[in-house]
């Protein structure tokens, strides 16, 4: 299904067009919409609290392999933090900003303010060469995000956190990943590595729906933009009634698929 999806070849002008040309209004979900989503997700059995996001949607509900920290897994947190730091009141080069991010996390570990399994704890046990590689990966990420950010004429900021929505009585949390927020949340940008899957459009709609429900006022971002720099591709979906509803449907479908696959695995 490609309705409502906009596909562009990545270029500075295309980025500007897609980000700055977002519609002026986004859909607003009502209490009835929230209750309907909760009822549908609540009807999908689960034996534990589950998290549904675009990644699960794109994988058709297939569970991910157990998480472990790698340079690729760490680059987004460090890279986004570095770009935020580099564009603050005391700007520094991205390379130095990433190093500062890593140093901050290591200081937290040294001060006993870090949990086991956290990024800081993982970094604290790395050889200097491994830390340098993590830094290189994060610099690459931050540079890619900066390339996207400077294309827009509007004010932008690096997202401080992903958006989460706990669905009432459904033992479900929805997550919308976001890297850049343009114009007070009007446009949200996600940076993605590799080649977009065929289900990338569904993933983007899932992000849009999750971000909309996570908003206290239920206001949808006017446009959700996925940028795949490796593939030179931009995908965007507008925050319309149709797209948000479609996003809700793919989230429910992912929960059903996850539940079925979980049952098969258990059997």
């Amino acid at each position: 299904m490609t309705a409502g999806l906009r596909l562009e070849t990545l270029s500075p002008s295309a980025l500007a067009r897609v980000i700055d040309g977002a519609p002026t209004e986004g859909f607003v979900v009502s209490g009835a919409n929230r209750r309907a989503l909760a009822a549908r997700l609540g009807a999908v059995p689960t034996d534990r609290h589950r998290r549904i996001d675009a990644w699960l949607v794109e994988r058709g509900g297939e569970p991910a392999t157990p998480f472990e920290w790698t340079p690729a897994a760490a680059r987004r947190i460090l890279g986004n933090g570095a770009l935020r730091r580099a564009t603050s009141d005391r700007p520094v080069a991205l390379r130095d900003a990433v190093r500062d991010e890593i140093d901050d996390l290591l200081c937290r570990v040294a001060a006993g303010r870090s949990r086991a399994g956290s990024l800081g704890a993982w970094l604290a046990n790395r050889h200097p060469a491994e830390l340098a590689l993590v830094q290189a990966c994060a610099v690459d990420w931050a540079t890619g995000l900066a390339d996207v950010a400077v294309a827009t004429a509007a004010d932008w900021s690096v997202a401080t956190a992903d958006a989460y929505y706990d669905v009432e009585r459904a033992r479900t949390t929805l997550r919308a990943r976001r890297d850049l927020v343009v114009g007070d949340g009007a446009v949200v940008v996600r940076l993605r590595a590799g080649l977009p899957r065929r289900s990338a459009g569904s993933g983007l709609r899932a992000d849009l729906a999750a971000a909309t429900f996570a908003d206290l006022d239920g206001r949808a971002p006017r446009r959700y933009v996925g940028v795949w720099p490796d593939a030179g591709v931009i995908l965007a979906v507008d925050g319309t009634d149709t797209s948000v509803r479609a996003g809700g449907r793919v989230l429910v479908r992912a929960a059903i698929a996850r539940s079925r696959l979980g049952g098969q695995l258990a059997a």
């Binding site: 991205l94 390379r95 290189a136 610099v139 690459d140 540079t143 590799g194 593939a231 030179g232 591709v233």
Partner: peptide
């Protein structure tokens, strides 16, 4: 602005 191991996967 230095990037390393820059990948292209162009469809």
């Amino acid at each position: 602005s230095v990037r390393t191991a820059v990948r292209t996967r162009l469809p």
